[in-house]
């Protein structure tokens, strides 16, 4: 139990096959409490499978996984009490308004004052004005923000974000990053999967690369960089990147995201 105090997620020898395809071939991983951990991998590497096993949506074929000290195989209800999952596609109810979506989740988490919780989160994610509109009318970034807001209800100690910025425009992406940083600052453990290297670089305290069903490296950004030969010093004219240009041109809203 002592280990569980400092370790939010502990995965040992995790295996999973779909029919004849071995997706996970013995994954070992530890995520310490309050950190942001990025699981990096190309499409089909098995990132989503790991997340689905950790959130009790899928059973592993072998190995063990503990979340917040609870075994995902035998203590599913306790695990679900400890986590929230934001899947690859913004899982919001399009027919309900943003506010109703938040109230729905608050009620399902058996919290009192669902209305107050909803209003606070709308405020925090700059959705107050849009709160009375159907979520189906939201832009991609707004849906994602609502999705993440829904995940925070009840302050679960562990949050899974499965490719939280896939399909988002650069502006929305920065908004999501900001939300993730705030989460971790509040002590929440975040496990995020991504295929964007810069996303891992920007957000994560530790990064693991999942490749062909195994973790091939695991460390801080600095440690990972040391795996390659030291950088050669070259003199190049500093050109603004396309991202810089785009963000400068589209204006002030992104400023908040950079801070």
């Amino acid at each position: 139990m002592l280990a569980a105090m400092s370790t939010a997620i502990r995965i040992q020898g995790l295996q999973k096959s779909f029919k004849d395809t071995k997706v996970l071939r013995g994954v070992d991983l530890e995520v310490s409490r309050g950190s942001i951990f990025a699981l990096l991998g190309s499409n089909g590497a098995g990132k989503t499978t790991v997340v689905r096993i950790l959130s009790t949506l899928l059973r592993a074929d072998g190995g063990t996984a503990h979340v917040n000290g609870f075994d995902v195989a035998t203590q599913g209800a306790d695990v679900r009490q400890s986590i929230s999952l934001t899947g690859q596609f913004a899982a919001v109810d399009e027919v309900l308004t943003g506010r109703e979506n938040l109230i729905l989740v608050a009620r399902l988490r058996h919290l009192k004052d669902a209305g107050t919780i909803a209003d606070d989160l709308l405020e925090r994610f700059s959705l107050t004005e849009a709160g009375g509109r159907r979520a189906g009318t939201y832009s991609g970034g707004m849906r994602r923000r609502l999705d993440i807001a829904m995940s925070l209800i009840g302050n679960p100690p562990v949050v899974f974000l499965d490719e939280p910025t896939t399909g988002l425009d650069p502006e929305a992406r920065l908004e999501v990053w900001q939300a993730v940083r705030e989460l971790a600052a509040g002590g929440t453990t975040v496990l995020l999967t991504t295929q964007y290297l810069d996303e891992a670089e920007q957000l994560a305290d530790r990064i693991a690369i999942l490749h062909e069903g195994r973790i091939i490296v695991n460390g801080t950004l600095g440690e990972l960089k040391q795996l390659l030969p030291p950088a050669k010093v070259e003199y190049v004219e500093k050109q603004p990147s396309l991202e810089d240009v785009f963000l400068t041109l589209v204006g002030a809203r992104t400023e908040g995201g950079h801070r």
Binding site: T56, A77, I83, L85, F89, A90, V105, L108, H110
Partner: peptide, 13 residues
């Protein structure tokens, strides 16, 4: 299909 089913399934309900 929309993913909200999985959201419900991953909640303590």
């Amino acid at each position: 299909q929309g993913g909200i089913f999985e959201r419900f399934q991953s909640m303590p309900i």
